[in-house]
Structures are given as structure tokens and as C-alpha cells.
């Protein structure tokens, strides 16, 4: 018997307890144990420990399971709800920017003509044009605040947001 075979026997003993041993390995192990008192002794010493270990259980209270499921459902719902919010935000941002870019040249000429006909100083209608660029942010803020308000009233009334949306 050499050190290597003792080491292999130790490894296989552990594998055997977890059911991860092949037939050939098992045959080798039992042959080794028959001829090696040291390993056989070790195996014998480990057996009661392993049996006791496997008998170790804990009790789980139904309340823990119930509250965990509830917490998991709530979190899943929160994550689900935040998704339409994101989609809404980016859709609102994209559409308002497209609208602004498309309408900018028209607006410039309309404001120019209007300014001239009303004999307004150029900076007044140019400032109005500048404010036009704030509209995307305003539009997105309005859409999002309406969305949040819907969510809040749904949560307060205890109606899931999904059904609230369907009803609305």
C-alpha cells in the first residue's frame, strides 16, 4: 500500500457516500478496504458521523414560506411594473424628439413670419423657438407622472396594476 492508494481510497469513500462512484471504482475501493486496516478503520469511523449528518433536519415554519412567497410575488410585480414604465419613458422620449426635429424648420419660418408681421424684436420669437426644445422633457415628465399616479392608486386600492390597466 502506498500513499497514493490511501489517498484514492479516501476520495472514493467520499464519492461513495454521495452516490458518485462507478462500479469499477467501487470494486477497487472495497478490495482496498479489505487489504488496508487503516483505511477500513477510517471508513468505519466516518460511518456513524455520516449517518448522523444525514439525519440532521430543520423545521421550516409555514409562516416563513408564506411570507417568502408573498415577498417574492411583490418583488416580481415591482420588477414587472417598472418595465412598462421604462418602455413608456423611452417611447415618449423618442416620439417627442422625432416630432421636434421634424417640426423645427417649420416652426422657425412660422415664428419668423409671425414676429415680422407683429413687428416683434427678433429675440422674442427666437426665445419662443428655444422653449420649443424643452417640450420633449415636459412631455415625458407628464406621461411618467400620469403613469406613476395610476400605479399608486392601483396599489392603494389593492387592485393589481395589470387589471387596473385593463379596466381603465
Amino acid at each position: 500500500m502506498n500513499f497514493k492508494s490511501h489517498h484514492r481510497a479516501e476520495e472514493l469513500l467520499l464519492s461513495e457516500t454521495a452516490g458518485e462512484i462507478t462500479r469499477a471504482e467501487s470494486e477497487w475501493l472495497h478490495q482496498h478496504l479489505d487489504n488496508c486496516p487503516a483505511c477500513k478503520d477510517r471508513s468505519r469511523q466516518w460511518q456513524p458521523v455520516l449517518q448522523s449528518l444525514k439525519a440532521f433536519q430543520v423545521q421550516v415554519s409555514p409562516e416563513l414560506i408564506r411570507s417568502t412567497k408573498q415577498a417574492v410575488h411583490n418583488r416580481a410585480q415591482e420588477l414587472q411594473d417598472s418595465r412598462p414604465g421604462d418602455l413608456l419613458f423611452w417611447s415618449a422620449a423618442a416620439s417627442s424628439w422625432i416630432w421636434i426635429l421634424w417640426s423645427a424648420s417649420w416652426l422657425w419660418s412660422i415664428l419668423d413670419r409671425l414676429g415680422n408681421s407683429l413687428r416683434l424684436p427678433a429675440w422674442t420669437w427666437q426665445m419662443a423657438f428655444g422653449f420649443w426644445w424643452l417640450l420633449p422633457a415636459v412631455a415625458v415628465a407628464v406621461v411618467l407622472s400620469l403613469h406613476r399616479e395610476q400605479q399608486r392608486s392601483a396599489a392603494e386600492s389593492g387592485i393589481p396594476f395589470q387589471s387596473f390597466q385593463e379596466e381603465g
Binding site: 464519492s15 461513495e16 452516490g19 458518485e20 462512484i21 462507478t22 462500479r23 467501487s26 472495497h30
Partner: peptide, 8 residues
């Protein structure tokens, strides 16, 4: 008792 490893 002999146990045999089961592949996934």
C-alpha cells in the same frame, strides 16, 4: 452498499 454515479 454500492452506488453508481448517474450522468446528467
Amino acid at each position: 452498499m454500492m452506488t453508481v454515479a448517474e450522468p446528467i
